[in-house]
Nucleic acid binder design. Structure first.
Lengths: 163, 163
DNA sequence: ACGGGACCATACGGTCCCGTATGGAAGGCG
DNA sequence: CGCCTTCCATACGGGACCGTATGGTCCCGT
């Protein structure tokens, strides 16, 4: 996996490998811990985000706006994880998170008045678009709408998703 | 970068490093060559795919279907490249390819009758969705619609994009 | 005060990879 | 035949990283 090497990590924390290997048995164990933590934080963040919101369309809009527009500042680690797949533990968590997210989107779309099947399709569309958007944000941000263009993009997307 | 190591590559080709370093000066040069080749092949493939097709909506549909449904068999390397970004040469090519693809989609959508701005938004939506879809295909295919569900997904997406 | 556990640093061997050095084999050409 | 270019293999040094070994410090209970 990339981005989780223990020697550089230890150095960046101002400590050493010796310390690390006291707390973790393995690099495997570090990955598991990071993964578990990521999965929990991610669901917490989502729940916290949509808790105080009203139901239906506005909740969905808030979510989508937060995800697409704010994304530059608080990047999701999904993409890195997805790219670093091939690791069994990663794949397992990733699949679970993916399912939950798509299911949640589909539920919201049903609540917004769509039929079951169509809601699912659009949930997949929205979520895959989110993933691709994240990918582009970090690989080639120049090709993406930013600022008010991004807002207009979200507007268009919302209209499309809930039409 | 991941997946382009020269020692494993040489071994998998039944040759050695010595041979490699005769043909290429650097690992850098290999990456450049692979990148250039990828960019060309990719445009060729797209052009070849849409050449014999009729204009307007059917061309777009063909493209989208090919991309989403057939994708399991002939995976695009974009994702791997995008993930392996940070490399300047990769970013440059990737941004060029991304722009061209989104531009092309927007053109097709304009040809299908949409306004300029809306076409661009939907092109971004379609392309980011494609990228995310590809990511999920290789990371957690279980969370995606496959088979006729995939076809229904493409149907839904086409209706949405050209509505 | 002292033995032992918690916590951490240094040092080492092993693996995988990059890049270089060097020594051929095979074929055109005087 | 001798020679030179082309193409390739083996051997080496270096760096990044994993995991282990080993010793040192600090603190806590007795």
């Amino acid at each position: 996996m990339a981005g989780l090497a223990i020697e550089p990590l230890a150095k960046s924390l101002g400590t050493t490998k010796g310390s690390f290997y006291w707390h973790f048995r393995d690099r495997e164990e570090l990955i598991s811990a990071a993964l578990e933590r990521w999965e929990n934080e991610e669901t917490d963040a989502v729940i916290a985000m949509l808790g105080p919101l009203a139901g239906g369309r506005s909740r969905l809009r808030e979510l989508i706006t937060a995800i697409f527009v704010t994304h530059g500042e608080v990047p999701d680690r999904s993409i890195g994880l997805a790219a670093a797949a091939g690791h069994p533990a990663v794949e397992e968590v990733l699949e679970r998170v993916t399912r939950r997210r798509i299911d949640y989107l589909a539920e919201e779309l049903v609540a917004a008045g769509l039929g079951e099947g169509e809601a699912r399709h659009r949930a997949v569309l929205a979520y895959t678009s989110y993933l691709g958007y994240s990918t582009l944000v970090r690989s080639t941000p120049g090709a993406l709408p930013r600022g008010e263009q991004a807002a207009a993009f979200v507007d268009s997307m919302m209209r499309l998703l809930t039409s």
